[in-house]
């Protein structure tokens, strides 16, 4: 799997943003009028659309395809204060061999850990092609100085992280200081170098769908390669309606700028049934260009085992049970 990355400086991103907005200077006022000029989201209609897509019936061959695709889209995650090198290595072993009973099982896309565990994960995964993603920028709250956030990012990149999952400053966003949010993302993007940048918007703290749409556009404008719902530390984490709005945003952004941006719902996706609902949405809202691990990811831990159980059931016709998948 290849991830297309482009190294962008903050100055380049600002210049490009001016171009998209059609302004000579990127000010908070310019960002505000652009973001607030986006069409609103009707909550009832949005949730109705999600409910409608949720009735899709995915059976037999398409279910098998969806399960394998979902497995390959997982960022297998452990983000605990109690994480140890042993725990991370165990998770990496799971990623390398998700189902010891069936070697044809696809591997997840990445392992997602805190910055200090990147080297451990890197060593455990070797040249398997499985990426290491690190959360950075004072995850999960993001409440630290910019110098600390940038140091956090550089540290993880230096340790070999292929992908950086940053958090936006929700306080700045909610107070209307979009320029600060923009600048922080652009600077982190610059600090990422070749690493792929995922921008966590923490939609559970943004609350309204209008905010989710604005934060999505702001994150894409500032150079995010992926927009991601949640840290997993705030409830609600990923939801289908929020992800629907993000999928509409990346779809429309590509039409506007020609740039494709990925989407990662994270937190709270635990079952195969849920994962398939997300894939249906990706397919019918953004289109099949997004139906690959390069452009869509699940931030999850428990989801993998449920997908493996369902995969075994499809293959053998019998549901084996929790003791037939490994707990890592």
């Amino acid at each position: 799997m290849t991830v297309s990355t482009t190294t962008r400086s903050a100055a380049e991103l600002t210049a490009q943003a001016r171009d998209v907005l059609g302004v000579s200077r990127l000010t908070n006022r310019a960002l505000t009028s652009w973001l607030h000029g986006l069409p609103g989201v009707d909550q009832v209609g949005c949730e109705g659309r999600v409910a409608g897509l949720g009735t899709r019936s995915i059976k037999t061959t398409s279910k098998a395809w969806a399960i394998d695709t979902a497995i390959a889209m997982i960022d297998l995650t452990t983000l605990e204060g109690s994480d140890t090198p042993g725990k991370v290595r165990s998770l990496c072993a799971k990623a390398l061999v998700p189902d010891p009973l069936d070697p044809t099982t696809p591997r997840p896309a990445a392992i997602c850990v805190y910055g200090d565990m990147v080297a451990t994960a890197k060593a455990a995964l070797g040249d398997s092609g499985i990426h290491v993603a690190a959360v950075a920028t004072a995850f999960p709250s993001g409440r630290a100085s910019m110098a600390v956030k940038l140091a956090d990012t550089r540290d993880a990149v230096k340790a070999g992280a292929d992908e950086i999952d940053m958090v936006i400053d929700r306080g700045a966003f909610l107070s209307g200081d979009y320029l600060t949010v923009f600048n922080q993302i652009a600077e982190v993007k610059q600090a990422c170098g070749d690493a792929h940048l995922k921008v966590i918007m923490e939609t559970g703290e943004l609350v309204t769908y209008d905010n989710v749409r604005r934060a999505s556009y702001l994150s894409m404008l500032a150079g995010g390669d992926f927009i991601k719902t949640s840290t997993g530390k705030i409830q609600p984490a990923a939801t289908l309606p929020v992800t629907l709005i993000m999928l509409e945003a990346v779809r429309d952004w590509r039409e506007l700028t020609g740039v494709q941006v990925g989407v990662k719902p994270a937190g709270g996706i635990r079952t195969t049934k849920d994962a398939i609902k997300y894939l249906v949405m990706v397919s019918e809202i953004a289109g099949e260009d997004w139906l690959t691990p390069e452009w869509f990811r699940f931030g999850a831990s428990g989801l993998l085992n449920d997908l493996l159980l369902q995969r075994q059931k499809l293959a053998t016709g019998a549901y084996s049970g929790a003791d037939y998948v490994t707990i890592d």
Binding site: K59, T61, S62, E288
Partner: peptide, 10 residues
């Protein structure tokens, strides 16, 4: 990768 065709679900 093949596209996400929905198998018949009658």
């Amino acid at each position: 990768m093949p596209t996400f065709d929905y198998a018949p679900a009658p």
